[in-house]
Design a binder for these strands. Sequence first.
DNA 1: GATGAATGAGGATTCATTCAT
DNA 2: CATGAATGAATCCTCATTCAT
Lengths: 185, 185, 185, 185
Amino acid sequence: MSPKRVDKAARKQEILAAAVRVFARKGFAASRIDDVAEEAGIAKGSVYLYFDSRDALLEAAFSQYTADADAIVAQALNSTDPPLERLALLVRGTIDVIAGAPDLARTLLDLWATDHMRPAYKAYREAVAELIAQIRPGLGLPHATVIVGAIEGVVLQWLVDPEVPIADLAGPVLEVVVEGLRERA
Amino acid sequence: MSPKRVDKAARKQEILAAAVRVFARKGFAASRIDDVAEEAGIAKGSVYLYFDSRDALLEAAFSQYTADADAIVAQALNSTDPPLERLALLVRGTIDVIAGAPDLARTLLDLWATDHMRPAYKAYREAVAELIAQIRPGLGLPHATVIVGAIEGVVLQWLVDPEVPIADLAGPVLEVVVEGLRERA
Amino acid sequence: MSPKRVDKAARKQEILAAAVRVFARKGFAASRIDDVAEEAGIAKGSVYLYFDSRDALLEAAFSQYTADADAIVAQALNSTDPPLERLALLVRGTIDVIAGAPDLARTLLDLWATDHMRPAYKAYREAVAELIAQIRPGLGLPHATVIVGAIEGVVLQWLVDPEVPIADLAGPVLEVVVEGLRERA
Amino acid sequence: MSPKRVDKAARKQEILAAAVRVFARKGFAASRIDDVAEEAGIAKGSVYLYFDSRDALLEAAFSQYTADADAIVAQALNSTDPPLERLALLVRGTIDVIAGAPDLARTLLDLWATDHMRPAYKAYREAVAELIAQIRPGLGLPHATVIVGAIEGVVLQWLVDPEVPIADLAGPVLEVVVEGLRERA
DNA sequence: GATGAATGAGGATTCATTCAT
DNA sequence: CATGAATGAATCCTCATTCAT
């Protein structure tokens, strides 16, 4: 009858955060429910009070990631700043978000192996294509793919090698990309 | 002395190729030794006559991949062409190799989650840094990271979404990158 | 001293009734404490305030069943009616009780798999044997087993297939059995 | 390359027989795959080389049981003997088969709780109804249900209490049933 | 060499029971 | 009394690896 002390949603977040830490450390394939439970400081069975299955945990981690990423794209897309400004916003935003949540970013390695990112990247490319078309006619999806590639490729290298200074790379990405797209004489 | 029906090395290659096809289809985590054996048309136990373990198969797939990739880097690095030429060679070569072996490329998704690519990408970046330093002083590792990122990021998008026209993207990558690095007024 | 809102014993009965409904629906093996609690409209933990364990619930359901059944046998046994009359009473009584409590009857399927019915059936047979010995010398336990079998076998068929019209079968059972035991010329 | 020594089908039968023994001893619900494996003298995992799941094992046991039972019914049904003769055949056949395979019979307790016996008993009743209709007009499904009930009810009692002399009860069943169906003056 | 049956450790999931609130 | 979150033992099933033939 007494109101339960634990906030279900909060506890679910705790477990998810623990799971993300574990996934970041060992990758999803090597992560055991036991590991997640231990990281969260609870019993194995308790994980199942909040998530239906091991896969559901990965799904949730993915959702969290893509929600963040989508927000960045939406923000840049909906801004009224000039195109180059918005491109910069997109690049910096994406890299900042990723660099700011390294554990979550690490799940990207598993996320890429699923179908989850396909629509996200597609939307990402299309948004960028729309942006750069305003910079110079003739720019479109191919160049958008290169830009998205530069961003994600830099992230990829950082995931592969933590010594890559991800936080410092938004600038160089923009330099190359902005110059690369500049109106030719 | 009469050679056995099959050549050991050739049989090993067949199995590895079969494994790569399976890995490409389902990812390494979901690939069973049984699947590989069936794909290779041999019995499960026979796989162990050629590979010590399931992981050894992945290792071998990785080695095959990195050997190809290293050759490209080495070739571009050792060429006597002018720097921009060599950069173009690097970009086109990498993309061509990857696009030409989609199954092998798909193992990249698993390869990235290991430590295997760390030294490869490091060497790659350094080679590119050396190249671009010859194009314009002031260009170095950060910009090299962006260039490698653009290449690998384009590949990544293709792995995530096969509709991305990887084969057509060497051009756009070069356009952006070459312009992006051009001497500023 | 003021009686609590609910009467302990009444609440226990409610839970038991809920349990019997659940057992009837899914069988004991597939019935979860959660199911029983939900059916009873209480929390899972509360079941344990009234029953020591899951098995205790089954025990209680069994006791309820056998109590009813025993009463029938005792009644027929203690009656002063002529033997054939009492036999009819037994047959009709048993079938009526069972047909009147289908959910409880369904627990028979689980009850049979335990040792609980052994003494009950033994007593049942012996009572019937005593009855029929008064009808005709030479009749005894074997024929009693057949009679009990006919009754329980009809019930069994109804449990297996609800379309079997259990309520209409006391008559046919008696016809066969009474004729079957009749004094031969 | 050498032909395997083990006969897959034979091994499957061994495991099934072991499973049936275990089921007979503890009932299906309480039977573990480990128990079956141990009874069969093999490793747990090996059970899965021959049966897809624990349930498949029960299915197989059921099939074996119903196949035997169906054969009896078919035999009695297809015989050209006079009706009473065929009824006797049915009763004796059923009881002999069951008494001859006590372990398998014990699975009846679990079988009844499934839907598997519904069509079998229905067919059984209809076959008997057809038979007895030839004995005396007016006899039909209700009396057939009683007869099948007597047979199965006798078996039930034996399953509940092994001291019930099942093998000796075909006679009494027939006596009661045959007399019970006799033409009335 | 080749086979594929056998093994058994490993890990996901379930659920009866407990107990702090 | 009632609750329902937490527990962790129990058990199914998978599959890499071994090895007798």
